[in-house]
Design a protein around this nucleic acid. Sequence first.
DNA 1: ATCACGACCTGGAGGC
DNA 2: TGCCTCCAGGTCGTGA
Length: 274
Amino acid sequence: MPELPEVETVRRTLEKLVGERITSMAVGRKGLHMARKPPRGALRKLIGARITGLRRIGKYLLVDTDRPQSILAHLGMTGRLRIHRKGDPRANHTHLVIGFGERELRFVDPRRFGQLDVVTRPNEREHVGLAVLGPDPLTDGLDTRTLFTIAKQRKVTLKALVLDQGVIAGMGNIYASEALWRAKLRPTTRSNRLTSQSTAKLAAAVREVLSRALDHNGTTFSDFVDADGREGDNEEYLWVYGREGMPCRRCRTSIRKSVQQGRATYYCPTCQTP
DNA sequence: ATCACGACCTGGAGGC
DNA sequence: TGCCTCCAGGTCGTGA
């Protein structure tokens, strides 16, 4: 579900929590899979703290408090962070409930691929998930020269290159297909074969695809919603993802689907040249 | 060192 | 209706 535009959409709808004081903290007993279990003790110590800001780094969200600690969240595939009223029925797979008087922020994740942790500022970047992240295209920009240098050093497919969080933080499977279509590049092409011109196109395409999706509040393919429960509108603007057999929006060729590294890739066999 | 693959989970959709 | 198989926005550990 959540790639950079979706996580940023959630971040924006969570900003209304700034200034609120944490009055309760309930940690589910079933752990999340990735990182170890959410640190129950460290989370409970934040009762009484006040929210001072919401940040996003790649696909990670940071809930800053007026203490040195921040809550770190990653939504994995099916994670949701939503604001509820205290009495609302609690969904299955609710892993964390942060109370703010009459309101609650709930983290729900059926597949349990998400992550929850507590990090200490200003060393939050030492967290294993954040330490490896490359530039975030929307906050750091995406420098063509840097991307070109990395591409030349490696022989991964372009699909794998743009999905690598150490290369572009925040890219995911939907927008990887979208960006490569936009840049007219074949997903199976090896990164070391990129020219500086095509790298520039790719960098521009990445920025464009992500900011456009953000303008539409993200893509709801099956179940993404923001913190207020609203779906994103970007699905109807997708160029290739999920459009197998439908005409390419540039050249009318039938869009193809293939599987790369176990993940669906969509591309146009005519205008995305190998 | 680099790369591709399977594992980790649950639930929804579609076939029979 | 019910059972089975397949598929899913992410990341990490393994083995080649």
